[in-house]
């Protein structure tokens, strides 16, 4: 099945499940739902907001078929955006009902004397959802460790879904028909199924797929390269540019998982080693990764992602990497060199200074093995720097790309600012959007 068809089917299923409570309510017993349009509007917002919340679990559960159609980083962004939409709907839900005459004190204050289980669960679910979204948006500013946030995020989300369901069932107004009861159960089954799949089944399947650290070497740019080998299994081959979720610890059930791109070539023979390059961003990458030593166990779930030149055939490529976004691009160059691929590649590498150019030596070594031009662009170079300065922009690009660049594909990977700038600028200078493929490194 083509990716386009698969994408349409997945989105169709998503839309159907979002609208399912509305459709079922209309078909089953419309006269009992609401006495006025305003109340009906509030109820409708609650229905769709709840469905969106439940489906948030599906967007990040790494279902390979869906991820292949959209890209895991796109699904993650969609998850983030629709989470905020769900919050908006679920905030508007009580507001409209209160305007319609529902007593605010009973519905918003779980400790009020007039509050009951239905109102308390509604209020607590709403406050938990607000907390969930705020801690996600402001995690770094609030200084919350990723691992702590990851656990809290999952628990809060589960609480919101369960408390909302209790609210719906105790209220009883929208569970009077068997069809409506089935609809709410569909979401329960979906959420429980996805949590079990993601947190239990996938780790169990990975139980016999242990990996071992062979080497842990320091790289420029406060990064480390981990060379891993599969233990008792064949490991995997991957499309250059893809990533995997890494875990440290004795079992694959640890909660902290980290999306890290492979930096080695993708055509790995059975049992072959795979290399990951990890930038120190604090937390796990700054504390646990440097402490890893040869022989230590790691868990690798992958490969994932659609960011690969293998999926974007062209006469040549322009790669634009910033920061640790260079790792998937290095993997692509390495693979092309190993394959003897003669197509030209121009690689723009944005970094702060000479010291922060991770994998530059390896990339320069590849220029003798393939048709590769590496253009480092430094925003804060030393006085001795002879190369490009500032940020990767159209003028710098024009100086280095060949005339036939309109036949090339652009693959861009890096921090948010670089991605935003490139996604806006490239179409403006005549590079059609379909020639540009991006991957964001702000998934978590």
């Amino acid at each position: 099945m083509g990716l386009m068809v698969r994408g349409i089917l997945w989105f169709g299923m998503y839309l159907f499940l979002v609208l399912l409570p509305l459709i079922t309510a209309v078909l089953s017993n419309p006269e009992r739902i609401a006495p006025s349009p305003l109340v009906a509007l509030g109820v409708g917002l609650g229905f769709v907001g709840y469905a969106l919340m439940a489906l948030e679990f599906a967007l990040i559960s790494r279902i390979k078929s869906a991820a292949a159609a959209f890209g895991e980083d796109a699904l993650q962004q969609f998850h983030n955006t629709m989470g905020m939409v769900a919050l908006g709907f679920l905030l508007a839900h009580p507001i409209l009902l209160i305007i319609s005459g529902y007593p605010a004190k009973c519905w918003l204050n779980p400790f009020a004397s007039c509050a009951n289980l239905a109102t308390r669960t509604a209020a607590l679910a709403l406050y938990a959802l607000i907390l969930l979204v705020v801690t996600s948006i402001l995690r770094k500013k609030l200084g919350i460790r990723y691992e702590v946030w990851y656990v809290l995020h999952g628990l809060f989300a589960l609480f919101v879904v369960v408390a909302s369901l209790v609210h719906i069932f105790i209220l009883g107004r929208y569970t009077t028909t068997p069809a409506m009861r089935v609809v709410w159960l569909v979401y329960v089954v979906l959420v429980i199924g996805l949590v079990l799949y993601h947190r239990i089944l996938v780790p169990i399947l990975n139980w016999n797929k242990k990996w071992e650290v062979v080497e842990n070497r320091v790289e420029p740019g406060d990064a480390r390269t981990l060379v891993l080998k599969p233990v008792g299994h064949n490991g995997f081959s991957f499309e250059p540019g893809q990533f995997a979720w890494l875990k440290t610890g004795r079992t694959p059930f640890g909660l902290g998982q980290h999306p890290i791109s492979m930096s080695s070539g993708g055509d790995v023979p059975p049992g072959g080693q795979v290399t990951f390059t990890v930038k120190n961003l604090g937390d796990w990458s700054g504390q646990e990764v440097p402490a890893l030593k040869p022989g230590d166990t790691m868990w690798v779930e992958g490969p994932h992602g659609v960011f690969s030149m293998d999926r974007e055939q062209a006469m040549g490529y322009v790669f634009v990497g910033g920061g640790i976004g260079i790792t998937p691009l290095h993997s692509m160059c390495q693979t092309m060199a190993e394959r003897g691929d003669p197509r030209p590649v121009v690689l723009f590498y944005g970094a702060h200074d000479e010291e922060s150019l991770t994998l530059l030596e390896e990339l320069q070594a590849l220029t003798s093995r393939m048709n590769l031009t590496v253009v480092p662009v430094l925003s804060h170079p030393s006085e001795d720097w002879q190369g490009e300065t500032g940020y990767v922009n159209v003028d710098i690009m024009k100086r280095h790309v060949p005339k036939q660049v309109k036949w090339f594909k652009f693959l861009i990977c890096g921090p948010e600012q670089l991605m935003d700038a490139m996604e806006e600028v490239l179409p403006a200078v005549g590079i059609p959007p379909q020639n540009v493929l991006t991957e964001r490194f702000d998934m978590v």
């Binding site: 839309l15 979002v18 609208l19 509305l22 309510a25 209309v26 419309p30 006269e31 739902i33 609401a34 006495p35 006025s36 349009p37 305003l38 109340v39 009906a40 509007l41 109820v43 409708g44 917002l45 229905f47 769709v48 959209f70 890209g71 980083d73 796109a74 962004q77 969609f78 955006t81 629709m82 939409v85 709907f89 991605m419 935003d420 996604e423 806006e424 959007p433 540009v436 991006t438 964001r440």
Partner: peptide, 30 residues
């Protein structure tokens, strides 16, 4: 997929959902 495309797509979907909710409200309260 582009970040911009995802944002636009989510925006369009949100509008579609609001329209669906309004239609729902009109049907069930009429």
């Amino acid at each position: 997929m582009h970040h911009v495309i995802v944002k636009r797509f989510a925006g369009l979907l949100t509008i579609l959902l609001i329209v669906a909710i309004v239609v729902f409200a009109l049907i069930v309260s009429s």
